[in-house]
Amino acid sequence: MINRFQPVLIAALVAAFSIAAQAQPAKGKNDDPVVARVNGQPITRSAVVEFYSQLPSPMNQIPLDQLAPGIINELAARRLLGEAAEKAKLGDDPEVKQQLKAVREQVLEQAYLDRKVTAEVTDAKMKARYDELIKAQPPQEEVHARHILAATEADAQAALDEVKKGADFAEVSKKRSIGPTAATGGDLGFFTKDKMVPEFAEAAFALQPGQVSDKPVHTQFGWHVIKVEERRQSPPPSFDEVRDQVHKIMADEVIQKTVDDLRKSAKVETYEWPSASGKKLPAIAPDAPSSKKK
């Protein structure tokens, strides 16, 4: 059980927590009970849960019930510090004002982009993009192979001779192979040609199911005897497997388009660094790199 979090951790979480807390929807009393009060002001369960969700590993592996007292204590401490800062009128300090302005701009920027992405990147649109990406990426041929790895050509040839006499390939691999797959009979599973070193790949993809290489194959790892079990066209990844990647692609496009559209109706002027020279630089092109979603 902890009673207080480290100040460094809290400082790192303040910004993220504050942004998320402002975005929380209103809840009824039964949905979001008050777990503490500071000078009459409530701290709700949702605030504790949100704080917990921002914790880094390995702290986020600890059950919430164990951390809740420490989180509540820290939220109360921050509330007290905030009230003290308000009473000290630190909000009127020019430096603090500038920092608050910068944070406000970041929160607004993120909120604006979040809403744009949420509106544009729907499940239906992601599924359609997924179908386009899969269609544009033709399947690759894969082979399912086993191998026997030996330190010398003579040892590999001895293993090959044993297989040619009718011995089971997997059993010979278990007995003779010095590779890490010996325990599974040299099973390498399915792989595409680009996943193996060239010498091994060329030999494996020249074989048909059931065939064994007619001579040992030399690579940087040693000498191999190869058997191909199956050949197939690689199945495409499912939508669920690549959902996050598709979302990121589309979100980046929405953000870029949003910035480009704003530039079209805005007047953006930049000046030579240092700005004291007063010399203007060429306007930024609409397709120039822009800020990405954080």
Rank of each mutant, 00 (worst) to 15 (best):
K87N: 05
E105D: 13
D92F: 10
K87Y: 06
D93P: 00
Q99G: 04
A119F: 09
K97H: 04
A128D: 08
I134P: 00
A85T: 06
H147F: 06
E95M: 14
E109N: 12
Q98H: 08
E95D: 06
H144Q: 13
D114I: 02
A145R: 01
V117W: 05
V121K: 07
K125Q: 07
V143N: 02
H147P: 00
A150G: 13
A145T: 13
E105R: 15
A128K: 09
D92R: 14
E86H: 04
A111T: 10
E141P: 03
E142Y: 07
Q106N: 15
L149Y: 10
Q137W: 09
K116Y: 04
A88E: 11
D131Y: 00
K116R: 10
D123W: 01
A119E: 08
L113H: 09
Q140G: 04
Q110K: 14
A102K: 10
K135Q: 13
K125H: 07
A136Y: 08
E132C: 07
Q98W: 14
A119P: 01
I134F: 05
A88Y: 01
Y130V: 04
V96K: 15
R129E: 14
D92S: 11
Y130M: 06
D93R: 00
Q98V: 02
P139R: 14
K89M: 13
V96F: 15
A136E: 07
A119Y: 03
Q99S: 04
R146A: 07
P138I: 03
A124C: 01
A119L: 14
K127C: 00
A128Q: 11
K97T: 04
E95R: 09
I148Y: 06
V96W: 09
R129L: 15
T122Q: 07
E132G: 03
A124D: 10
P138H: 07
Y112T: 13
E132N: 04
E83V: 00
K116T: 03
T118E: 15
D123M: 11
A119N: 05
A111I: 06
L133C: 01
V143E: 03
L113K: 12
L108Q: 12
A111N: 12
K125I: 09
L133H: 09
K135F: 03
H147T: 13
K87I: 10
H147A: 06
V96A: 13
L133N: 06
D123C: 00
K89L: 14
A150Y: 02
P94N: 05
Q99T: 03
R104L: 11
H147K: 02
Q98P: 00
L113Y: 09
L100D: 05
P94V: 08
K101W: 10
A84W: 00
V121I: 04
A119V: 00
Q106S: 08
A136F: 05
